[in-house]
Amino acid sequence: MTYNLFISHSWSYSDNYSKLVNLLQKKPGFDFRNYSVPKDDPIHNARYDYQLKEAIERQIRPASCVIILAGVYATYSKWINIEIEIAQRLGKKIVAVEPWGSECTSTVVKNAADEIVRWNTDSIVRAIRGW
C-alpha cells in the first residue's frame, strides 16, 4: 500500500523536513507519495495569500494523512495554522511529530493533532498506518 502524505513544514526549518522524509524513505516496506509543497515550487512566489492557500489545499486534498513537525516555530506560523484548518475541514488525520531533542513544542499543533509521536521512525509509520 502507498500512503499519500502531506508533510507540513517551514522552509526556514527545512532541515527537519528533509530528515523526516529521509527516515520515511528508508523504512523497509513503507511506500508513500509526498504531496508537500516543494521549496522550488513557483507557488511560493504567489502574489496573494489566497493563491498559496488554494495551492496548499490542492496538495492536501489527495493526502490520507497530514504530518506536522511540532517544533515551537510552528506556533507562530500562519501557514501551518492554515494547513491545520484545511486538514480538519477535509477530515484528514493530523499526526504531530515532536522534533528530535526538542524541549519546547507547539501547543497549537499538538492540540490539533489526532496523534502525537516522538521522532522515531516506527512510531511515525505506526501513526500513519493506524488511520
Rank of each mutant, 00 (worst) to 15 (best):
T2P: 10
L5S: 07
F6L: 00
I7V: 14
W11I: 09
W11N: 13
D15P: 01
N16F: 04
K19G: 05
L20W: 06
V21W: 04
Q25L: 12
K26T: 12
K27I: 04
P28L: 01
G29M: 01
F30G: 11
N34Y: 08
Y35K: 05
P38E: 02
D40N: 14
P42L: 00
I43P: 05
H44Y: 13
A46C: 02
A46L: 01
D49A: 07
Y50W: 15
Q51V: 03
L52P: 10
K53S: 06
E54R: 12
A55F: 01
I56F: 00
E57C: 00
R58E: 06
R61T: 08
P62E: 04
C65G: 07
C65T: 15
G71H: 05
V72D: 10
V72N: 14
Y76L: 02
S77V: 01
N81A: 07
E83A: 00
I84V: 04
E85H: 05
E85Y: 02
Q88T: 06
G91R: 10
G91H: 09
K93G: 02
W100M: 10
W100F: 12
W100N: 15
G101N: 15
E103L: 12
T107Q: 12
D114V: 05
E115W: 07
I116D: 03
W119M: 09
S123G: 03
R126P: 00
I128Y: 05
R129S: 13
